[in-house]
Amino acid sequence: MNKASYRSLVVALMQRDFKVAMRRKSDSINPLLFVLMVVTLFPIAVGPSHEVLGRIAPGVIWVVALLASLLGSERLFRDDYLDGSLEQMVLSPAPLELLALAKISSHWLLSGLPLVILSPFCALLLKLPIEGWLTLMLTLLLGTPILSAMTAIGAALTVSLGRGGALLSLLLLPLFIPLLIFATAAVDSSLLGMPAIGQLLFLAGFMVLTLTLAPLAVAAAIKVSVN
């Protein structure tokens, strides 16, 4: 296989995932509804005052985003594993790392990007001051690819277990801590009227590092899981 056919394979694999997602819309929509509902719970639980909500909004939105990404992550490789497509990916002439990157990309487009688009509504509901909105969206834009890549590692490791849910959270949540720290700190400094570029650059660095190394881990994990 040459480079051109690798590229068309990646495109075909992503198109396949989109078609499957379009035909089972609830799988993509439910995590987003989950985000909206949890965000609604906070004003009810802590009271609707501007100061409290605005103060905790960046943290709440990010924690909810982490939980939502875990919610859908179990399914990332589950269907491919059950119907045998994962075996065929391992045996395909194309490098498995590339196919893993294709899966990560389509997962991000289907779950991460909608979250970025949804975030202004969450910011509105949680009364996040307007100065923080752009930074919040930027942190989600840089952070959700990391979420997709890391959940792909966890999902590939646990796909053959059939009941990975709670285990997956145990494996992944500690690894999300740097992301949570820098993302919320970026929004906080915007709220204080300070530049957030430093934190955003750190997030961008994490993203590049994760997207470079995660496909290797995902490919290794898939090979372990299909046997």
Partner: peptide, 29 residues
């Protein structure tokens, strides 16, 4: 938490070989 994750993954598989390999990948991550 990271230690507990590795341990939980190691013991989650009925096939020990698979569990050990999965835990190895997680330890490296």
């Amino acid at each position: 938490f990271l230690y507990l994750g590795v341990l939980a993954l190691y013991h989650a598989f009925s096939d020990n070989r698979t569990g050990a390999k999965a835990a190895s990948i997680l330890a490296l991550v």
